Amino acid sequence: MFRQEAKWVGDLLKNIDTIRKPVIANIGSSTALFREALQPHIHEHIFKPLQQKGYPIYHVDVKEDNGVDMVADITQPTFATQHTNAFDIVICTNMLEHVEDINAVVQNLYTACRNNGYLLITVPYKYKKHLDPIDNMFRPTPEEITALFKPGQVQQIAAQIITITERSYYKKKRSHYPLWGYREIAGYYLGIRFKVSGVLLQVKK
């Protein structure tokens, strides 16, 4: 996750008003090492402020590891049956491009979220192919993310295409061809930047 993306997510979550203390799920969370050390801006901007408010947070991933609170597979039908209406806020960042059946995952996210709860989703919009373990090359606009849900299931509260302007994300790559390894850096200075689509949706049931 990019730093600007994490800040955008964190700022939205700070402003969500709920009647009760919300139960939060971070789907595809990866490990505590990833969130707090390798990409510490994830913890700093998103989860630390929520923890300081005393909100219960469940980091959900398919692999058991340190910092994973719940081992579950969002791509499987059993996820919906086991976690129906379980969460007030469901966070799913940079994951829909790594699944085979996007619609199945989207419906599982919807099922796991309570009525009038919130779904916060980000997906790369302009970004290179990156395998984890697959990349289906889903590169939607915010409106295309919202359109994945059935009519009446969600109301779009916020939408943004986040342009990544931080220079450190554009790096030289190894290449057998002269200058080809500098394409990301050249693109940066030509105004060709990575972009991420994000939406905050309120669930209606």
Rank of each mutant, 00 (worst) to 15 (best):
T18N: 07
H83I: 01
Q160T: 14
Q107G: 00
R174Q: 15
Y110N: 06
Y118R: 04
I27H: 04
T81L: 12
M70L: 15
Q202A: 04
N66G: 14
A72G: 03
D101L: 01
S30V: 02
V199K: 01
I157Q: 09
V154M: 03
R174K: 14
E184S: 06
A112V: 00
L109H: 00
F34V: 12
A72I: 03
K195G: 09
N108L: 03
A112F: 03
Q107R: 11
I91R: 06
Q160R: 14
R20P: 00
A112I: 01
E36N: 13
I46C: 05
E97P: 04
I192Y: 09
F34D: 07
R114L: 10
T93C: 13
N115Y: 01
F149K: 10
K7I: 14
I164W: 02
S168M: 09
T93S: 10
I145G: 07
T78M: 10
F34E: 11
P56Q: 08
D101R: 06
T165G: 09
I192K: 15
E64G: 12
S168Y: 10
K21Q: 12
N136F: 06
Y110L: 12
L179D: 11
Y182N: 06
Q4P: 01
A147D: 15
S168E: 15
Y118F: 14
F194E: 15
H41N: 02
G198A: 08
R174P: 10
R114P: 02
A6Q: 00
P22S: 07
S168D: 14
Y118I: 05
P133Q: 08
L12E: 11
K126P: 00
I46E: 07
R114I: 11
H130V: 08
Q82M: 13
S29W: 04
V60Y: 07
V99A: 02
Y125A: 13
L131K: 13
V199E: 01
W180V: 14
D135F: 11
T122D: 04
Y55K: 12
T165F: 10
S197F: 03
L33D: 13
E5H: 03
E184T: 01
A80E: 10
I74T: 06
A186S: 04
M95I: 14
E144W: 00
L190D: 10
P22T: 08
A186K: 07
D101M: 01
V99N: 01
Y177K: 15
I57M: 08
S29P: 07
Q82W: 00
N26Y: 05
Q52M: 12
C113L: 04
P49M: 10
I134C: 03
Y182S: 07
Y110C: 02
L50R: 12
T81W: 04
Y58H: 15
D101K: 08
F47M: 13
I164K: 01
V106L: 01
Q76M: 15
Y182G: 00
Q153K: 09
D65N: 13
I89G: 11
A80D: 09
A147F: 02
F149L: 12
K21Y: 02
K150N: 14
T163C: 05
Y170T: 11
A86C: 06
P49W: 14
P77E: 09
N15Y: 08
P22N: 05
K14I: 03
R35I: 02
L12K: 11
N66E: 15
I102E: 02
P151Q: 05
T81D: 13
K21L: 13
R167G: 03
T18H: 11
T93K: 01
Q160V: 10
G181D: 01
M95T: 09
C92Y: 14
I42E: 05
